[in-house]
Structure formats: structure tokens, C-alpha cells
Design a protein around this nucleic acid. Structure first.
Length: 189
DNA sequence: AGCACGATGCTCT
DNA sequence: GAGCATCGTGCTT
């Protein structure tokens, strides 16, 4: 049975969505083959007030998708070579998203491993490289399988299995945003 | 196991 | 022109 998370799932507070995406199944159809992983790490980026968020300076061409409908993919390019996958959250007009940072491969592991040349997939740019996610998926619907990229409900995760901490890579971001505990990880089993 | 650094190009000021 | 929600390599402990 297919159980794609609906748009309403994303149209909620970003911290809630980030926590609940842990344990969910990220699915990608690449060259007609189904690849999937269980999301094990995610971070919340919440509005123009959040100085760690790309929307900190208002709407731009790059971050425009974050201002749109919840449940769409915000995919951006950084460091000259890396793609990052986010799920847009909250209500239309409020710029917020969840960065998908890591997953545990559960379908198409052979292809995923080959695409990574045997290296690990524990990291936001590694994940997008493994799944073949790039600018062509910016704005794609995550609640609709026709996009080739969606998220399915997983087994519920106990709160005691979730580790929180500060977001990664915000070295030049001022406090308190730099240290907000808006990174969520599934405890290793 | 951990740290430092270079790669590499797009976006916004 | 500066900075970047990173990664892989290579060198040090």
C-alpha cells in the first residue's frame, strides 16, 4: 500500500515537520528504478527572523520556492558543486523548510552505493548525489508521485530515539540562531 | 580519529 | 567580489 505524506503534513510548524520526517521514507524514481531511504537526520529553517535561513534577507530568485506552498522541494546549489534537498513547510508566504541531511538506504542500495562509488551517504550533498537530485527538482511536489520524488509515511519514532542539537555549518550566523537546537537525528541502533 | 584545506561556481550585495 | 545549510583527501596524533 502506498502511503505518500499529504500536503497538509508539511503545512504545520517546521520543527514538528522536521521531527516527524525522521523515520519517513524518501523515494526517488531514477531511470525508472525505485530508490529509497529512511530519513535519519533533518534540520529546520524557519522564516526571515531565523538568521540561519536563506530567507533572512527576504525573497530572492533562489529562495522563492520557500515562500510557496508547503510540500514542495526546495533544491539549491552551494559550494560550487553540491545540491541540497529541503521540504517546504508552513503556510504559503511564510518561508520555511526542512533540510534532509541523511538517510539509511532501504531500496536500490546497489545503485545508491554505485552512484556514491562505495562511499557513505551520510550528509546532505551525499544524499542528493546518491539519488540524482538537482535543480530540475526545485519546486517539485513531494506529495505527488508524478514528480519522481516523494516521501512516504514510515514507522513512528519514539521521542526518546530523537537526538536534538544545533544546526550544522552555520559558523558565521549570529546567536541565538547559530545554536538553536533545530537539528534532529534518529539515534543509531 | 581528527583536523585543515582546497575544490568550484552560483547568488546576492 | 565575497560568501556559501559541503565533501574528500591527506597529513598529524
Amino acid at each position: 500500500m502506498v502511503n505518500i505524506l499529504p500536503r497538509d503534513f508539511y503545512a504545520r510548524p517546521t520543527l514538528t515537520v522536521a521531527r516527524e520526517l525522521l523515520g519517513a521514507r524518501l523515494v526517488r524514481i531514477l531511470d525508472g528504478v525505485r530508490l529509497a531511504g529512511i530519513i535519519i537526520e533533518a534540520e529546520a529553517y524557519v522564516g526571515e527572523e531565523d538568521l540561519g535561513c536563506h530567507a533572512r534577507s527576504g525573497k530572492t530568485k533562489r529562495n522563492a520556492v520557500m515562500y510557496g506552498w508547503a510540500g514542495h522541494a526546495y533544491v539549491y546549489f552551494t559550494y560550487g558543486m553540491h545540491w541540497m534537498l529541503n521540504a517546504v513547510t508552513e503556510k504559503e508566504g511564510f518561508p520555511a523548510a526542512v533540510l534532509i541531511r541523511a538517510m539509511q538506504a532501504v531500496e536500490g542500495q546497489g545503485i545508491i552505493s554505485a552512484r556514491r562509488q562505495g562511499r557513505d551517504i551520510n550528509g546532505p550533498a551525499k544524499l542528493t548525489q546518491a539519488l540524482g537530485i538537482d535543480a530540475s527538482l526545485n519546486g517539485a511536489s513531494l506529495y505527488d508521485s508524478s514528480s519522481g520524488l516523494w516521501i512516504e509515511a514510515g514507522t513512528p519514532v519514539a521521542g526518546s530515539d530523537i537526538i536534538t542539537g544545533p544546526r550544522v555549518g552555520l559558523d558565521t550566523v549570529p546567536e541565538p540562531w547559530k545554536s538553536m537546537p533545530w537539528r534532529f537525528q534518529l539515534r543509531r541502533r
